[in-house]
Design a protein around this nucleic acid. Sequence first.
DNA 1: GATATTGAGGACTATTCTAGTACTATATGA
DNA 2: TCATATAGTACTAGAATAGTCCTCAATATC
Lengths: 149, 149
Amino acid sequence: MLKLSKLTDYTTVILSFMASNTAHIHSALEVAEATGIALPTVSKLLKLLVKAKFLRSVRGAKGGYNLAKRPEEITMADIINLMEGPIALTECSITQQGCGQASGCHIGGKWSLINRTVHNALESVSLADMIMPSAFPSEVLIPVKSLLR
Amino acid sequence: MLKLSKLTDYTTVILSFMASNTAHIHSALEVAEATGIALPTVSKLLKLLVKAKFLRSVRGAKGGYNLAKRPEEITMADIINLMEGPIALTECSITQQGCGQASGCHIGGKWSLINRTVHNALESVSLADMIMPSAFPSEVLIPVKSLLR
DNA sequence: GATATTGAGGACTATTCTAGTACTATATGA
DNA sequence: TCATATAGTACTAGAATAGTCCTCAATATC
């Protein structure tokens, strides 16, 4: 499976919870109970999200966390980028310098296109979209092939 | 990084090599030398690709492998599906039955859309596209957000 | 001002996954 | 019949991931 790490998955769940309830601040315990994720793990992720400026924290008794940005301003691409680094399906697509397989590999450019496509897909979905109850979308068409020539 | 396993990466390189030279059959050793991937690994992948019907094999002396399908008929989605299983960014998007986090997670439907978008992106690129020398594509636009409501 | 509550930060461990290797059996051309 | 090549399976080492724990710092409340 072309997969995200569990922690990335948890992070989207946590952020979605925060976004759906922006009124007051939530303690780590509260988030853990609401999401069903173990407290130490939640705590670890919340700290990470503060560092990344997605959340604000309030220390001390009655402290907790809340969103530092509007839900529309946080995209899936942002979240994945934070948790997993740059969105790229292959090693060689990250840096400009080719990979070790140089002699046998002539497909670098195509990967960069594919990566960009995936990135765009993820950037087009924000936290606000994630928490919106939705009718099932009809069809998604992507003109990638037409661009390959 | 939202990443593919190395083996998946190798597989695309190997298949691209086979596709760019469909005239005669290639031994595992030949493929290994052409791609720069270690022979045992190449051998393992070639066997896998035969089982998946992407390649045909000829046993015995002067044996080897060649493509069983036309390059246009093998898409990136096919390759990733073979190597990593169904294209899905999260566990819960694969099966219909919700995840263990049921109580806290209300975003399953959105993931399915995102997954479908990514899948479409990957399905639109075939082996034939991968081996074609290309001008750099200009822009890729995906109307995902407009479909979320 | 003392105490309880809650976040900050970092270290550590267990487990799982991945990649790579090795070995034996089978088929075929010369 | 021998050399060459694939088929199939099992195993191992290493790396990445997930998860936990402990100590320190800040703040509200009594």
